[in-house]
């Protein structure tokens, strides 16, 4: 019994949170409309956290993702202003994300700088570039093409409820596609298993003949491209771009991955567990707002719940080992 609690404690806790809101907000929480809303609200974080999982599987992390999200948004906006077609502008912004990620990979893997230091430096570089590109201004209004803003407002019609249409938002579909792609890469390919081997023991992986340098370098391309995609989703949602708007994504994404790690057997990052972590964070924001909990109290509660989950999981694992 105690073994089950230890193994599934976090999952039970997450379920309890959902159950609590379902009981407290009987009319509004467990509705299709609310969950479609939540899925859209967390879509950007999902993309960043899912791709963050790819480097965290190796034991690395990427602090520059928030700055890259902001940079991608303002680059796309600058290209819109310059009259580029929307698809070309978006592809260019994602390409910048990919290049930025590869640059991070080179610094970490080829040059050998610690990920904390390397990506902290590139965070500053990307953020500075975002200010350079945008001249510190917010691009909005007529400069943002109608079609781009409509992307975040549209979706697949699912029917209607209470006389209002229900749609599966496009942003949710994009997030789902990214999670599926990362899942396939990490769980279904030898590439993904090799990344996990590096996370287990990088030296052993090297001695076993894995191309560790190339693997680490390439993994960072995921976080860069993912951050850029999330930044574009954000820009579409707010129909504008400013040089700091994506910055908040980084810490929350890392928190989501850690939260997810409390769900997995060995405490490794897994993309579906990360998704569960993101959902919990999104549900907390949604439910506590609906319950009219003060914004600042909400932040304290969210932080405390992350600590509880991670702390409980660490204690559980330690006593597990002791009983071993």
């Amino acid at each position: 019994m105690s073994g089950i609690v230890r193994r599934f404690g976090s999952l039970i806790g997450m379920a309890a949170i959902v159950l609590f809101f379902a009981v407290s907000l009987p009319d509004t929480f467990l509705t299709a409309r609310n969950w479609l809303n939540i899925s859209q609200q967390i879509s950007m974080l999902t993309v960043v956290a899912a791709t963050m999982t790819v480097v965290m599987v190796m034991g690395d992390f990427d602090l520059s993702v928030g700055a890259m999200a902001s940079l991608a948004g303002v680059i796309a906006a600058a290209l819109f202003v310059a009259g580029w077609p929307v698809p070309v502008a978006l592809a260019s912004a994602v390409a910048v994300g990919l290049l930025g990620g590869i640059f991070n990979g080179v610094l970490v893997s080829v040059v050998g700088i610690l990920p904390f230091v390397a990506t902290l430096a590139t965070l500053t570089v990307f953020s500075g570039l975002a200010f350079v590109v945008s001249d510190g201004r917010t691009v909005f209004g007529r400069d943002i093409p109608e079609g781009f803003a409509a992307l975040a407002r549209g979706g697949l019609p699912l029917g209607s409820a209470d006389g209002r249409p229900l749609v599966l938002p496009n942003l949710t579909l994009i997030a789902a596609a990214v999670v599926a792609a990362v899942w396939v890469v990490l769980e279904q390919t030898s590439y993904g298993r090799r990344l996990a081997a590096i996370g287990g023991n990088a030296e052993a992986a090297r001695l076993a003949g894995l191309p560790v340098t190339w693997l680490r370098l390439s993994a960072f391309a995921f976080t860069g491209a993912g951050a850029a995609v999330a930044g574009l989703m954000y820009a579409s949602r707010v129909a504008s771009a400013n040089p700091t708007q994506g910055d908040g994504l980084m810490l929350t994404a890392i928190a989501a991955v850690f939260l997810g790690m409390t769900l997995t057997r060995g405490g490794q990052p897994r993309v579906l567990a990360t998704l569960a972590g993101v959902v919990v964070l999104g549900v907390l924001d949604n439910g506590l707002t609906q319950m009219r909990v003060d914004s600042y109290v909400r932040e304290v509660l969210v932080g405390a719940i992350i600590l509880l989950a991670v702390g409980a999981s660490a204690l559980g694992r330690r006593s597990w080992r002791r009983q071993g």
Binding site: V5, I12, A16
Partner: peptide, 8 residues
Amino acid sequence: MQTITQMV
């Protein structure tokens, strides 16, 4: 975890 969640 469950009781703690209830407290929160």
